[in-house]
Simulated assay, not measured.
Amino acid sequence: MKGGTTIVIATKDKKNRSSRNPGKVFEKEFYDSVPADEAVFSYRLKDDSLGFANVKNPCDFILYKNPNIYLLELKSHKGKSIPFGAIQPNQIESLYRHNKIKGIIAGFVFNYRDNNETYFVDAVTVYHFYHMGERKSFSLEWARDKGILIPQKLKRTRYQYDLCNLLKY
């Protein structure tokens, strides 16, 4: 078209947005890994990662398996460390406080994508390491030492996580 105007309409496909964000893919795969045949309640909190409406969730997931409730913040990162900046300070503080209540197990699930390793680390351990000020990230070696391995299995293109170790914590 000579001298004409071309209009391009760009739309965001919300249904496929998670497939582009590895962190959201990890959250979905984790949620899909909750055992269906056991008495486990699971709830994935709505995540407002842009901070609109001043929403500050303490975690991504709530799991309940008698007698404990689990408050879990999931973090997936490339490389051999997860920088402190990937976690909101309010999440570290609130999960630390919640973890002090009997029957609540609060913590972080760290997924090191490049190494295909995932660990649960309780909120108290994360809180103390974060506030020591000696480091600026949670290294894979640190997670191996302080955390509980969550076995994972690749099923074609997606992972399935064996949550048995976590639910026995």
Rank of each mutant, 00 (worst) to 15 (best):
16 N>S: 14
41 F>E: 10
102 K>M: 07
85 G>I: 04
32 D>L: 11
12 K>Y: 09
48 D>L: 11
122 D>M: 08
115 N>G: 08
82 I>T: 09
105 I>N: 11
29 E>Y: 03
107 G>S: 05
136 K>Q: 15
117 E>S: 03
60 D>G: 04
122 D>Y: 10
54 N>L: 11
111 N>L: 09
32 D>Y: 05
85 G>A: 12
89 P>M: 09
9 I>G: 04
16 N>M: 11
25 V>F: 03
34 V>H: 00
109 V>I: 15
19 S>K: 14
97 R>N: 14
38 E>M: 10
13 D>M: 06
128 H>L: 14
111 N>Y: 15
34 V>L: 00
136 K>R: 15
19 S>T: 13
112 Y>T: 02
75 K>N: 02
22 P>W: 10
13 D>A: 08
109 V>W: 02
79 G>H: 01
56 K>C: 11
69 I>A: 13
121 V>Q: 02
85 G>P: 01
26 F>I: 03
43 Y>H: 12
132 M>W: 14
73 E>H: 06
49 S>N: 15
20 R>N: 11
65 K>S: 06
132 M>F: 14
95 L>S: 04
141 E>A: 15
15 K>G: 12
76 S>L: 05
57 N>M: 09
105 I>S: 06
98 H>F: 15
119 Y>T: 05
117 E>T: 01
46 K>Y: 13
26 F>S: 03
140 L>H: 09
48 D>I: 12
142 W>K: 02
134 E>C: 12
16 N>H: 10
15 K>T: 12
77 H>V: 03
56 K>M: 14
98 H>Y: 15
15 K>C: 08
68 N>E: 09
42 S>W: 05
20 R>L: 14
59 C>H: 10
42 S>T: 09
140 L>R: 13
32 D>R: 06
86 A>Y: 11
33 S>L: 01
92 I>S: 05
65 K>D: 02
74 L>V: 08
69 I>M: 09
